[in-house]
Amino acid sequence: MNELESYKKKLSVAEEKVKILEKMIEDRTRELYTSNQDLQRKNQDLEQFSYIASHDLQEPLRTISSFSDLFLHRYKGQLDENADKYMSIISNSALRMRALVKNLMDYNRIGLTQARTEVNCETVVREVESDLADIIYKTGATLDIGELPVINGYEMEIRLLFQNLVSNALKFHKSRKKPKVEISATRESVCWKFAVKDNGIGIDPVHQEKIFLVFQRLHNRSVYEGTGIGLAHCKKIVDLHQGEIWVESTLGQGSTFYFTIMDPKTL
């Protein structure tokens, strides 16, 4: 009897503890919810801030660019050699800075979009192809678009991802060879594996890990334009989709960028 009493008592203490803990969890959940909303608001502010900041930056940069170009155009050869050199350095730097500001903007925006949706990758890649029509035409490139799946993901990010990979593939082509880019996908157990293959200059093994870091620049900028931030974007986008991104390449023989996108339905 005594034992029974003691069990009863223990049980009621345990019940009381459960109630207290449940209340704590509720309170905490409410707080987390509020601070999450706070964070979202701050994120929006930040997004807006970087948008405004970059616009404000773009404007004077454009002015520097155009006036240094104008200067070069008008006064080239009239001052000494150094003056020409300095002015073209200013002009190039301003151009690069504009590209950087733009890329940083894009980088900030990733992950701030709405919800996942069904994304038809084939449609997306066709759209990317038409966005890049100019460079495709100029380089005489061909795009070979395989059968691509409909995935569950963030559409704007997926588009950026393909855009970056395809335009990289076009950019880093061998001087006298027409770029050829193949985009394909294969089904793995819980994800889709995409491949973007080019016949370009390839990547030295020592660089293959580093290239996904922000601002890491792979090729001498005098030969190839590009700010190097593109692949860091790609990594961020792939991370957003719980995937992996890597490259397989042999110097001089082209590169294949692979990435995977988790399919939440199979998890």
């Binding site: 009381e16 503890k17 207290i20 704590m24």
Partner: peptide, 8 residues
Amino acid sequence: IEPFVGPG
């Protein structure tokens, strides 16, 4: 008064 719980 109430029983002690870990996070309290």
